[in-house]
Amino acid sequence: MTGHDVVFVLVGLLTAAAAILTVTSKNLVHAALFLATTLAGIAGVFLVLAADFLALVQLVVYVGAVAVLFLFGLMLTRAPIGREALDNQNRGLAIGVSGGLFVVLSALIVDAVVGGSLGDTTVAEVTGPGIEDIGMAIFAEWVLPFEVLSMLLLAALIGAIVLARREPGDSGEEAMATRIDFGDAPPTEGTDSLSSGSLPELTSGERREGGP
């Protein structure tokens, strides 16, 4: 048992405990913080596995951005707290499915690794490609998937804005509509006045409030 193994066992136990607490915690904010701990532990696992660049990316993207995004999500949705409010009636089914899957998969993995069907798998020293290799590979071999990923991120950005934007006429609190008049611009309320009939001067939000 080398030093690598000892460090991995420590980090792995921390990660596993934090992951289990993430899905069993009764408090939403605690769950998000345990998720951040899990993700940081996974970054530590990457470090032990000699994937330095990936560990840093994991820290920046997951612990830095995604965990904060989840905290925002929890706070903006004002969710109730408590096991009854957080878990549904499927807990027995969930324990059965995940526990059974874990037993089957870990039996297969132990059989493959210890049983020797993967060959001699114990490496003396963990090595991985350096950051130069990763950069060269991304921008030479993998440049098309890289560009596709950038398009995906752009689409997700626009899609998230469109989905989360509050339109006048949605339920909830109405935001004050800002009307910009451009002087000699043609009337821009064409469809609005058509739909509102005899009340062309009302915005859709006011129409909703005054309606039956």
Binding site: D5, F8, A16, N90, S106
Partner: peptide
């Protein structure tokens, strides 16, 4: 270092995730 530890940790995380998706 044997790959047994990382693979088992990944299995545990995956199953914990499945539990969360079903039960939460």
């Amino acid at each position: 270092m044997s790959p047994l530890g990382p693979l088992l940790l990944a299995t545990l995380l995956f199953c914990v995730g499945i539990y969360g998706v079903i039960a939460r």
